[in-house]
Amino acid sequence: MLEARLEQANLLKKVVDAIKDLVQDCNFDCNDSGVALQAMDNSHVALVSMMLKAESFSPFRCDRNIALGINLTSLMKVLRCAQNEDILTLKAEDAPDVVNLVFESSESDRLSEYDIKLMDIDQEHLGIPETEYAATITMPSAEFQRICRDLMALSESVAIEATKDGVKFSCSGDIGNGAVTLRSHTNVEKPDLNVEIALSEPVALTFSLKYLVNFCKASGLSSTVKLCLSNEVPLLVEYGLASNSYLRFYLAPKIGD
């Protein structure tokens, strides 16, 4: 059986809220290492990969592999019934028809319980190779969100170029062109505002802004975001969570002329 207790229901609420417009029905794969989710969007352009490690829960118990097939709109309806500060416990039997969610208020004796009916989801699982990326950019997540939103006003696509001088986000559209360039930057007092660029070779790739703006819905999960790029492979956008848990998005590049 599965029994996993999260200190704050808000974490799962934010994760599901961030991905629910990209993917609808997902398997939450539970085993002794934690709760994982991998799903492509309908057009097979983007991939969501979430890992909530066992250490993110206290306690965490999962005796055997259980796939919980859940519709994210349904899950969100139930998660909205939790207060942000509530303690959340997920429970399921070994061959479950439902997943049980219990919300406990830490301040009162209120206890609420919900069951969500599970679905059989036949999902393709993709193997994501370990990649040494040519460029890794760590920056404030709010800054990345702002750049994507700003450039989307002008164009459908953004070119991301990383060189030793910095990282340039540029676009061109019907009304004109736009570009934002960031250089490595260290703020001793506010390290969350740092921009770090680790580069082994220059990279230039083009991506759809619609997807990037969608990924940025995860900005509330982490003050920083990591962008990993190599020429001609999907972009990795990673929001790190506590206890080495993460929410990752992969986006296939636009290629050709």
Binding site: V45, L126, V233, A252, G256
Partner: peptide, 14 residues
């Protein structure tokens, strides 16, 4: 203009 590639083309199916 550039063409959108598919994520499944980069990552192998299990």
């Amino acid at each position: 203009s550039k063409n959108q590639t598919s994520i499944a083309g980069f990552f192998k199916k299990h």
